[in-house]
Design a protein around this nucleic acid. Structure first.
Lengths: 154, 154
DNA sequence: TTAAATGCAAAGGGTTTGCACCGGA
DNA sequence: TCCGGTGCAAACCCTTTGCATTTAA
């Protein structure tokens, strides 16, 4: 488990992954537009998870003319490409995970609102048990476990 | 884990629990109104989980004059009494769990949409590991794990 | 009597949709 | 040229809030 702060942490991502987005769109006959460039740029400096609304907001910082529906439609496309995944956060909102090759879930403290990443190794036993006993295949990227963190338990 | 069907299963609950609601409200200086009677009656024949919207709908079946805000406000009160709990389902909506004395989470198949209850024993290892390693106390009633069930994995 | 609860209406928030126009390839 | 994308606006859905009115106790 790694601390990721109350909401989201950001940092530069592997440029190669993002450079390829254009080509992957072209391969499918889809287009590389200025609006998509903005969203991809935003995603490239995002680590962890963000809500759709947050992405809209960040795109607007780069291009005030950003339209929400365009962002959401592009997110759909990028999800098809496997570049983002979406799940639902503790507040029930759409939550996007960037670069799901580092698949993880989330731990959320309902007392202080902090969120931590939950790595695959943390839930190995659960994943294996559900598979063995019920044949259920867990989609970890979609998991958010709510509770209280150590500090808030006092 | 117990099968609960694609959405919700219903059945008669322990009458004693529901009879006491009136008294528990009175103990707090709160009131036993016709509208609350309707909601409690609906909850009494509900097992598992329901969304707020579903509860509004079922109340309307009994009393077409049902107002959503009243239902949601009463749900808040009942949550204070520990009679329901709420979390967030796979679609991100408010989801209420009835009679949390049988606390459980949920398994949701994103392929067929079925939902199963996840009992405490299914996640013992996870709960213990998170506690031991990170001091995190899991609120199982808030957990929904998404993935694919045995049938849909083919 | 009187604080709690209701009804109504309106706002709220994030997300989705329809449709005419625009513009990458 | 032509189909995919965009902008805009409106719709959507569930949920929450404010406020005057009603009602349980």
């Amino acid at each position: 488990m790694s601390l990721s702060g109350p909401s989201v942490s950001a940092g530069p991502a592997d440029p190669l992954v993002w450079d390829s987005v254009r080509d992957r769109l072209h391969d499918r006959g889809l287009r590389w537009t200025p609006q998509r460039r903005v969203l991809v740029a935003v995603l490239a400096e995002t680590r962890g998870h963000v809500t759709g609304a947050e992405l809209v907001e960040r795109c607007r910082e780069r291009d005030p003319a950003t339209i929400p529906s365009t962002v959401y439609r592009t997110l759909d496309v990028l999800e098809d490409l496997g570049i983002v995944r979406h799940g639902h956060g503790p507040d029930g909102r759409e939550e996007y995970h960037v670069l799901p090759d580092a698949i993880h879930g989330h731990l959320h403290c309902k007392a202080c609102g902090s969120t931590w990443e939950l790595e695959a190794t943390d839930v190995t036993a659960l994943v294996r048990a559900l598979d063995d006993e019920h044949g259920f295949e867990v989609d970890l990227s979609h998991v958010t476990i709510v509770g209280r963190c150590r500090r808030c338990r006092d």
